[in-house]
Design a protein around this nucleic acid. Structure first.
Length: 427
DNA sequence: TCTGGGGTCCTAGGACCC
DNA sequence: TCTGGGGTCCTAGGACCC
């Protein structure tokens, strides 16, 4: 049976930024969420300054100043493009690959007479570094959950492991488990960690040795799978094919609070268009649409969360139809007098477009709409997002997402290519 | 002033059916 | 009258992930 390797890009967003900006090398760096709200990525230097993941920017200003920490807004276009390059490089090693997240993939690896698993891990690491420029860590084990733990230690003991750790048939497996706090185990979040702690379960080793019925009762079958995986019993197979997804969400927080129905309409019209684009891109239609509006839960102002779920009949991926529906929902849930912070749409009951029964009436109009949609998608693909849009809504609302310091999209926009002559960074 | 966005899975409980 | 057992489907909420 092949071993499972987890390849994990080190501090991915920060590494992407540092790849293109010489001035960021050897400096503490953080990347921020939308609206520059909070920290979503840190490099090693920033981590050693105890800047927490998720820390809101306004609370860490002093540290950033004093320690001369560089900070950047997020640049998802850049990260997405580099991620694809990393994944393409990994796919050269084996067809048994699961694209788990933007910066992680699971691989099925089989050692050969010439190459041990550790050798393979190093080869992967070196090729990704050479071809793409991103540093990765590789953890190898019998199960996904153990591979996660191997990667955790590969990253933390860099001098010993050089970023590659094979725990299959390893005398160090128990030690590794004993040195893994239980909250670091994949599938154990802070709530379970707290509960387990109360029962004296502090490490991955403790969890591995916990009785099945206790785990089943406290953590459901999901937790039991985790425990079995820690014992080396494979419960979570590699998911090689990209399963069709089950939902699509598009939501944003506003840069500043919004109160009027008009602004919410404009925002939702845009978000639902984005969601419909995603549907069409994946050749899906949706059967259910949820629309929601929220106030800011961190503020002492009056709170209101409104949401309404409506059936889409017949199933659709056409922007005009979904837009009409979400605006109808909004009208029903909108309450004046609140400071809204966030709004969005959620599409569920997704099925392949072909499986839906053809519409018996309105067929001509629908065919026309479909053609308009694909023309819009083609134009937007060529000339940039929102070149053409559906509906008469303000192009920019009063609620632009803030990107105070977004780096250039070096690899996906011709106008933002790095200039070699001067090494100037476009601003 | 200032706290992201996008996902998955499981369970309990209610509605409804025979 | 007012009661059992068994089943399905749906939804809300909780837990987790990156």
């Amino acid at each position: 049976m092949a071993a499972i390797a987890l390849v994990d890009c080190n501090n991915f967003y920060c590494s992407c930024e540092q790849l293109f900006a010489a001035r960021l090398h050897d400096k503490p760096l953080v990347v921020l969420s939308n609206n520059d709200g909070c920290v979503i990525a840190r490099n090693d230097q920033a981590k050693s300054l105890s800047i927490a993941m998720g820390a809101p920017l306004f609370k860490i200003w002093d540290t950033l100043e004093e320690q001369q920490v560089e900070w950047l807004s997020s640049n998802y276009e850049l990260y997405g493009d580099l991620s694809q390059r990393v994944m393409a490089t990994l796919a050269d090693f084996t067809p048994d690959i699961e694209y788990y997240s933007i910066d992680e993939a699971f691989l099925g690896l089989t050692p050969t007479r010439q190459q041990t698993l550790t050798d393979l891990g190093r080869a992967i690491q070196q090729r990704v570094k050479r071809h793409v420029g991103i540093p990765v860590s590789v953890g190898i084990a019998e199960t996904k959950t153990l591979a996660k733990i191997a990667t955790y230690h590969a990253k933390r003991s860099k001098t010993k492991t050089q970023g590659v750790l094979d725990l299959t048939a390893s005398p160090y497996l128990e030690l590794a488990l004993a040195k893994t706090p239980v909250e670091e185990v994949w599938g154990v979040g802070w709530r379970y960690a707290e509960m387990l702690g109360r029962h004296g379960i502090q490490t991955a080793l403790d969890l591995r040795n916990a009785p099945d019925d206790f785990i089943r009762q406290q953590m459901s079958v999901v937790g039991l799978r985790t425990v079995h995986e820690l014992r080396g019993i494979r419960c979570l197979p590699l998911e090689l094919v990209n399963a069709t997804r089950k939902s699509i969400t598009v939501s944003r927080s506003f840069g500043s609070a919004v109160t009027t129905l008009e602004d919410l309409r404009a925002a939702l019209a845009l978000y639902v268009s984005r969601a419909a684009e995603k549907l069409r891109k994946e050749d899906l239609v949706a059967g259910v649409l949820t629309t929601f509006i929220e106030t800011n839960r961190f503020r002492p102002t009056p709170q209101y969360n409104g949401s309404l779920t409506l059936d889409i009949a017949p199933f659709s991926n056409l922007t005009p139809e979904l837009q009409a529906l979400t605006l109808q929902a909004l009208a029903a849930i909108y309450r004046p007098g609140y400071q809204y912070k966030r709004t969005g749409v959620l599409l569920t009951n997704l099925v392949p477009a072909q499986t839906v029964t053809r519409r018996l009436w309105e067929d001509e109009r629908n065919e026309q709409l479909r053609q308009v949609m694909s023309a819009m998608d083609a134009i937007n693909a060529k000339f940039g997002r929102d070149t053409v849009r559906w509906g008469a809504f303000a192009r920019q609302g009063l609620w632009p997402t803030k990107f105070g310091r977004r780096s250039p999209r070096y690899t996906t926009r011709w106008t933002e290519l790095m200039t070699v002559g001067s090494l100037a960074e476009p601003r």
